[in-house]
């Protein structure tokens, strides 16, 4: 019994210390204001974080859109309400599926590779070497990756959503014969730019921030062994997926909670 309490206490302390270290990393790397040289580095990181995630984002978005079109149609057509397919698809994608699913894919594709990359640099003493060459590894390694994740995520989510809507259009309108005009105009009638689209962008900004933060911190804080790196990589995917889903609920409650 005593043992269990002691372990709970130790676990809490470890958790608090981890949180403290990650906050320290966040503050220190964000306080560095990017200069011209950093911009080139950020762009290079957008390539490895954003561009390389594009294929999985586009393919997944397309299929999810097609499934939504198919499911929406088969359920709505029973009430003769297939004209509501446009709003149904658009609202699901813009508000929830776009930001959330693309953030989950981002955590799996880009987050894990960020952790592994930084962890490997730590294990092979590249970070320590950099520090002893009077170069701050936070500025050189962590900060550009941070900004790249933060910039890439909303763009990826927007691409995901747009491709998903196109997929739903192909299934619903071209294949199942829903009227194209009512598909688009129904959407425009029910999707609000400020309330839905901008809130979706805010969500994906928050998700991009959190996923990149977790990924970068896990890499920077890893045990410098191969076992440590593989564990950190797993932790990145698990923790950032859970963080995305939890935050999504909180954000949704804040944004759409008050019913009109």
């Amino acid at each position: 019994m005593n043992d269990a309490i002691a372990r709970l206490g130790a676990g809490t302390l470890t958790f608090l210390a981890t949180l403290g270290r990650s906050g320290h990393l966040l503050i220190r790397s964000l306080l560095l204001i990017p200069g011209w040289r950093d911009l080139a580095r950020i762009s290079l990181q957008i390539f490895s974080v954003g561009v390389k995630s594009l294929v999985i984002i586009v393919v997944a978005g397309f299929f999810i859109g097609m499934v939504l079109g198919l499911q929406g149609y088969t359920n709505l057509v029973r009430f003769g309400a297939e004209a509501a397919l446009g709003p149904f698809v658009a609202l699901s994608l813009v508000r929830e599926l776009g930001p959330v699913v693309s953030a989950l894919l981002f955590a799996g594709r880009a987050g894990s590779s960020l952790t592994a990359e930084i962890g490997l640099m730590k294990a092979t003493e590249q970070l320590a070497g950099m520090e002893l060459m009077a170069v701050d590894p936070l500025r050189r390694i962590v900060t550009p990756r941070f900004w790249a994740g933060f910039i890439s995520m909303p763009l990826l989510a927007a691409i995901f959503t747009a491709v998903g809507i196109i997929g739903a259009y192909l299934v619903g309108v071209s294949w199942l014969g829903v009227d194209g005009g009512s598909f688009w105009s129904g959407m425009q009638d029910s999707v609000d730019f400020q309330k839905d689209i901008l809130n979706g962008v805010v969500k994906s900004l928050v998700f991009g921030f959190v996923v990149t933060w977790i990924a970068v911190f896990r890499g920077y804080d890893t045990l410098p062994t191969s076992e440590g790196i593989s564990r950190s990589t797993t932790q990145t995917v698990v923790h950032s997926s859970l963080a995305v889903l939890g935050l999504d609920f909180i954000l949704t409650a804040l944004m759409f909670g008050e019913l009109n």
Partner: peptide
């Protein structure tokens, strides 16, 4: 630290740069 050089056991070369860029790194930075 600019007055110190350290040779790590693993070498700690930056894996994403050529040998030339590795040696040029401290100079450029």
């Amino acid at each position: 630290r600019r007055k110190m050089g350290v040779l790590f056991q693993s070498g700690a070369l930056f894996t994403d740069m050529s040998v030339y860029d590795n040696v040029a790194f401290p100079l450029r930075e």
